[in-house]
Amino acid sequence: MGADNFICFLLLPLIQFFFNIHPNLCTMKLLLIEDEPELAGEIINYLSGHGFRCEWAKNLEDALEKVAVFEYDSILLDLMLPDGSGFKVLKELKNQQKTEGVIIISAKESIENIVEGLQSGADDYLTKPFHLPELLARIQALIRRKNFTGSNSLQFNEISIDLLSKEVRVNQNKIELTKREFDLLLFLVGNKRRVLSKQAIAEHLSGDMADLMVSYDFVYAHIKNLKRKLSEAGGEDYIKTVYGIGYKWQA
């Protein structure tokens, strides 16, 4: 009993404090508002491997209830719910002056919808269908923005990534990466231990220009360059090729 009390009253605030300044290292609480159970299942499956504890609300009523009672680090919001529009959740969050980061995951991708969503307090917008690694990268980016604490950096063994200055060091040796190589590194590290398809990587790297993509071959060129630069600086070879599918950051 004594040990339990000790953890509850003394350690927990400490742990929470620790969580807040190093959000990537610990379990994040995430609310998924999505009416399609199959999709929700897959999202939860993918995210839970990356330190997220996901709660699922399958309709608007459920979502509003959860939002009112609990605090989340991030909310994934589908706009088209069986019992109403997801915009109501955004309104409710505003009313309660909550500052949870919200990513809209919607089937509707009209400009008006995106603009309205972002104006109503959403932080990002992802159109269905999307790649799960892309969703994870967006959530991580959102949480980093929300938990801004001055030194916004990411450490993976001997590799350190400064997200503000976009500097990458391997064992304190600074390496020069192009913008795409930097994005690629961040995407791989963020989705570590996960197999990423060429398509997911290509679409992530091309961003708004994904429609201009003619083939996924350019991914290979970027991977090759990144691997070379990391190994030249003395880094371990974490990027593994997965036959037929893509690549994986081996941790």
Binding site: E38, Y46, P129, G246
Partner: peptide, 12 residues
């Protein structure tokens, strides 16, 4: 979206 998500998980 379901297919894409299932596929992304299948890769794992």
């Amino acid at each position: 979206a379901v297919m894409q998500a299932k596929l992304d998980n299948l890769f794992q």
